[in-house]
Amino acid sequence: MSLLAKYFPNAVTMKGDFLQATGETLYMTAITAIVAGIIGMAIGIGLIVTQPGGILENRVIYNILDKIVNLCRSIPFVILLAVIAPLTRIIVGTAIGTTAAIVPLVIGSAPFYARQIQNALAEVDRGVIEAAESVGSGPIAIIFRVYLKEGLADIIRSSVLTLISLIDLTAMAGAIGGGGLGNLAINVGYSRFETDVTVMAMLIILVIVFAIQLIGDLLARHVDHTA
């Protein structure tokens, strides 16, 4: 404990702040992951089935989804935070705080996740889809029983990637008033020259990232039967 006090003189006195900030980061990440996960998954599946040669080929819908994803992904997240502040105010009632941060986080990460899902599902062998069609499977069965089942290992790997980049975004959102470890690292650690607070915040984020990576890898390996 004395070692901790020696190298993190300011951080040890802020145990409560760190607990709260970690909670806020996990809260933002979890809620965004659920909302953006559902939206991104839906768009990703939409892209795969409507793409040229897909099971519900539809040029118009594919192009609309494709353009939306590209557009949202082109806006730098820091600018997105500011640009959609009015929208956030309408949805949440305020543009400041942890819950308010979730709106730009969803808009920032859902298109990224959609692209990841699209890529993961594109790996599913076209021949397997055809085999399912040949035994009389319809689009719903093919989506849920072939695409999502066959692509599961890749979906898990993409989800891990998205989650980690999401934590990156929460830190950014935190820095401009969203709370969480990012807020602590910048507004306390960096602004007050309490470098140990910044380092501590970074270490906690690293632990969260490593944990997600580890669990994801284990899960992906568990469902992967390709080799």
Binding site: D125, G127, A131, E150, T226
Partner: peptide
């Protein structure tokens, strides 16, 4: 089919 087209996850 030529390449069997079995589902690897099942």
């Amino acid at each position: 089919f030529q390449h069997f087209n079995l589902m690897a996850s099942r």
